[in-house]
Design a protein around this nucleic acid. Sequence first.
DNA 1: GTCAGATTGTACTGATCAGTACATTCTTGA
DNA 2: TCAAGAATGTACTGATCAGTACAATCTGAC
Lengths: 189, 189
Amino acid sequence: MPRTVKARADVLPALAEVFREYGYEGASLSLIGQRTELGKGSLYHFFPGGKEEMANAVLDEIDGWFETRMFKPLRDEADASAAIRAMLADTLSYFRSGRRVCLVGALALGDARDRFAERINVYFAAWRDALASALVRQGLDESEARPLAEDAVALIQGGLVAARAMDDPSLFERLLARLETRLLPPAKS
Amino acid sequence: MPRTVKARADVLPALAEVFREYGYEGASLSLIGQRTELGKGSLYHFFPGGKEEMANAVLDEIDGWFETRMFKPLRDEADASAAIRAMLADTLSYFRSGRRVCLVGALALGDARDRFAERINVYFAAWRDALASALVRQGLDESEARPLAEDAVALIQGGLVAARAMDDPSLFERLLARLETRLLPPAKS
DNA sequence: GTCAGATTGTACTGATCAGTACATTCTTGA
DNA sequence: TCAAGAATGTACTGATCAGTACAATCTGAC
């Protein structure tokens, strides 16, 4: 039954975008239906648990993407600096220069926070820890790497808020460019 | 008719807290009624424009608080460093070490963004510009002050997101402490 | 072709939403 | 004391919410 799997996975990007744009509570089933081009029958066929299962499926996909694409390289790649540069580039493109919101961050601020609290926590902690690991392999002490990674994750999230608030994607780009100079070791080639 | 004015103003703190906790759409009138201990009759008596007028009243109060308490001193106070230190201390206490969310930031990420887009934009821009002004008076070039102020505002917003996401108020405190060392001139007394 | 099961559309449910209408109660100034 | 108007409680409106039920349709294996 390849079609079942395909159809459910096909819906996830549209689903994610609805949650990103409207938040958990704001993403009504009628809106979800429009964006995914699926009726209620199909939606509840694929996601018997309703909205909560939809959001969890989206979060699963996001977790998977960040884990394999960013966190794992940050933890494991031999060239830590390259992994950090790749992380920044991926961050820029994933969030569309700040035009796209971080769903996890939006959930953290919104009214559905408690419902996904554990997942939200894990996502942020994983990002911070993976980045700190890369910084340590770059030669920093744990005691320097930890705070720097903490700053970086917060700066990225805040950059998304600020870029959206001021409707200025270039702000997010500038933020990431400056962050790169703080995260990479000075004047190596 | 002093009582009218008093009653309306008395409701604003509770109103603000509801919007902060549940977002604009999530703050239902029944919830607002409970928290403010006002029935629908009273709420629509004080705010004939409904929820939107309530949110605008709250934003007015927030704007006023930040303007007089933080932005104006940052722009005008003779001792720029003292104003920056005061800003950081006020930020810490206002947001309750990250336990309290920034309503403006939450609105920026949420589904009611378009409704308050202009106000949100102005709030962020005012903070950045006021801080940049203080940095310039501290001796920085405009070209250094601008990016640093931009970073600071984003870091604060991101700190609120991250502190809430990881349920760790001390994270917000650490962030602000490190930010202070970046904003104040090194080793003066 | 046929049939089991996957998929889908439609019509419901009861709850809750923002907002309105309005009669009642309270407060205040004279 | 008493009216004017401020303040409030209650009962509504129609819309929309998440979720359910179920019959109709489609699909692929045989």
